[in-house]
Amino acid sequence: MEMTTDMTERPGSDNASWERNRLREEVLDDIDEEIELELDDARLGSDKDNGTPDFRRAYFRELLSLQGELVKLQDWVKETGHRVVVICEGRDAAGKGGVIKRITQRLNPRICRVAALPAPNDRERTQWYFQRYVSHLPAAGEIVLFDRSWYNRAGVERVMNFCTDDEYEEFFRSVPEFERMLVRSGIQIIKYWFSISDDEQELRFRARMEDPLKQWKLSPMDLESRRRWESYTLAKEIMLERSNIDEAPWWIVPADDKKKARLNCISHLLSQVPYHDVSKPEVRLPERVYSPDYIRQPVPDSMIVPQKY
């Protein structure tokens, strides 16, 4: 599918106009996130005059189609007991959370869940490095998406000097064997790096600064990471080189265009798992049981939520 709008190229002349347009796109993207929660195939198919630009209509249609396939994948994982780990890494504001949201949006949280671990506490810092991640690994019939993962050591911890050189080197000695061990135990590992340009990250940070609903996403660590762009680039290059193994290779998602990144990542994820349709018994709604002795009690007005809308 070709998307008909691309605003990721900065024109050579009017930078102020380009930035205004991109900031507007950021606002519209936030609106789209809410629209996506309400759209369904019927509405999309019948409401042809809803004012949605062609590229957005195409995006929604493709997203809904891919999410339908994700439901089939979920059913297959549950039926077969397959175990999947999806690792999502990338710079701050690269769009990892947006992709994860679209993957999980229509799935059963008991089958597909997200692991987004905070910074380790004092006790966890004294444990085997991978220990706190192990408890989040999937059981049979589960999918776990790591919104950042054990690769924190190769990225933020290295750049911000939160680990020693010895700990850093030990990580790269251990991580290939750790992942091979997981694969041998039957866990499929799929690793994504979301790649954005210097200009795009700056614009997304500025958009967060101006949006009171998204300012919470901009932490002091994010601001410091912006200053250390080149250090993060070097750390990323070393990470990809030293942890790209046949059993769990890295995949790069170009992410300057959020919508394309979401569709491309979901489509690729589906291609990595050998799922197929799972036959399910026909669902029948049982007859409602009525009891002649039952009298429904009135609810006190004081308990009713005020009807402001």
Rank of each mutant, 00 (worst) to 15 (best):
M3N: 07
M7A: 05
T8W: 04
N15H: 13
S17H: 15
W18K: 00
E19L: 08
R22C: 14
L23A: 14
L28H: 13
D29T: 12
D30Y: 14
D30S: 15
I31R: 15
I31T: 15
D32H: 15
E33H: 15
E34S: 13
I35E: 14
D40L: 11
R43L: 14
K48C: 12
K48D: 11
D54N: 06
F55G: 05
R56G: 04
R56S: 03
Y59W: 10
Q67Y: 15
E69P: 05
L70C: 04
K72N: 03
L73N: 10
Q74N: 03
W76D: 08
V77H: 11
G81M: 05
H82L: 11
H82P: 01
H82C: 10
R83K: 14
V84A: 09
V85I: 13
E89W: 10
E89T: 10
R91C: 05
D92A: 12
K96W: 04
G97F: 07
G98V: 07
T104M: 14
T104C: 13
L107N: 08
P109M: 14
I111H: 08
C112G: 05
V114C: 08
P120Q: 01
D122K: 06
D122T: 09
R125G: 02
H136R: 10
I143F: 04
I143G: 07
F146N: 00
W150Q: 00
N152S: 06
R153G: 05
R153K: 09
A154C: 01
V156F: 01
E177Q: 03
F178A: 02
R180Y: 12
V183C: 00
V183W: 00
S185E: 06
G186F: 01
I187C: 02
I190Q: 04
K191W: 01
Y192Q: 01
Q201S: 07
E202C: 09
A207P: 03
D211S: 03
L213Y: 04
Q215C: 03
W216S: 01
K217L: 01
S219G: 05
S219Q: 08
L223I: 00
E224P: 06
S225C: 09
R226E: 00
R228H: 11
R228P: 02
E230R: 06
D246N: 13
D246M: 11
D246S: 12
W250I: 07
D256M: 02
K258Y: 08
K258G: 14
K259N: 00
R262Y: 01
N264Y: 07
C265Y: 08
I266D: 02
L269G: 02
L269A: 06
L270V: 10
S271V: 06
Q272I: 01
Y275C: 00
D277M: 09
E282W: 11
V283E: 07
L285A: 12
P286R: 10
V289P: 04
V289H: 11
V289E: 11
V289D: 08
V289C: 11
Y290V: 15
Y290D: 12
P292G: 09
I295M: 14
R296L: 15
P300D: 15
K308H: 15
